[in-house]
Lab assay of single mutants.
Amino acid sequence: PDEFRDPLMDTLMTDPVRLPSGTIMDRSIILRHLLNSPTDPFNRQTLTESMLEPVPELKEQIQAWMREKQN
């Protein structure tokens, strides 16, 4: 489902985090971005790792969907 895909890389998220802007991304992708630029890739506001907020409900939904697909 589209809501499980990272908006920057269009890959399935495994550890979704919410940026201060409200955008949800995969943690590994935003951390890689932050190594090059300490900004939100969508609005260029300053962004640090400590500002990332886990989204455990979405992570659980993704994991359940993945388990379902394996069966």
Rank of each mutant, 00 (worst) to 15 (best):
S28E: 14
D6Q: 00
M51E: 14
M25K: 03
I30V: 13
H33T: 06
S37L: 05
E57G: 07
I24V: 15
W65S: 05
I30E: 05
S37I: 11
R32P: 00
E68F: 09
V17P: 01
D15A: 03
Q63E: 12
K69A: 09
L12M: 10
Q61C: 08
L52P: 01
D6W: 01
L8V: 12
P38Y: 06
E68H: 09
T14S: 13
L52N: 01
K69Y: 14
R32A: 13
D10G: 14
M9K: 15
P56C: 13
D15K: 01
D6E: 04
P54D: 04
M25V: 09
R44I: 00
D40R: 03
H33A: 06
I24S: 01
D2A: 14
L12P: 13
N43I: 00
A64F: 04
G22K: 00
M51H: 09
V55H: 05
L58P: 00
R5L: 10
S28T: 15
A64V: 12
L19R: 01
L47P: 06
I30D: 00
N36R: 15
T11K: 07
P54L: 00
G22W: 01
L34Q: 04
N71I: 15
T46W: 15
E68R: 09
S37T: 07
R44W: 06
M51L: 09
L31A: 14
I29P: 01
R5W: 07
V55P: 03
L12S: 12
R18D: 08
L12W: 02
N36I: 09
D6N: 04
F4C: 03
Q45P: 07
E49C: 09
I30S: 03
D15V: 00
P56W: 04
L52E: 02
V17A: 01
F42P: 04
R44M: 15
L47C: 13
T14Y: 12
T39G: 02
K69W: 05
F4W: 08
K69P: 09
I62S: 04
S50K: 09
I29F: 03
L34I: 10
Q45C: 08
M9A: 13
L35H: 15
P56H: 10
Q70S: 11
L12D: 08
L47S: 02
E53S: 07
M66N: 11
T46S: 12
D10Y: 02
P1D: 08
D15T: 09
S37C: 10
L8W: 06
L12N: 05
A64E: 09
I62Q: 08
P7F: 03
T23P: 06
L52T: 01
I62E: 08
E49V: 12
R18G: 02
S50A: 13
E68T: 10
W65V: 08
M51A: 08
W65E: 07
P7C: 02
M51D: 15
L52G: 00
N36S: 15
N36C: 11
V17I: 03
Q45A: 13
M51G: 07
A64G: 12
S28Q: 14
L34R: 02
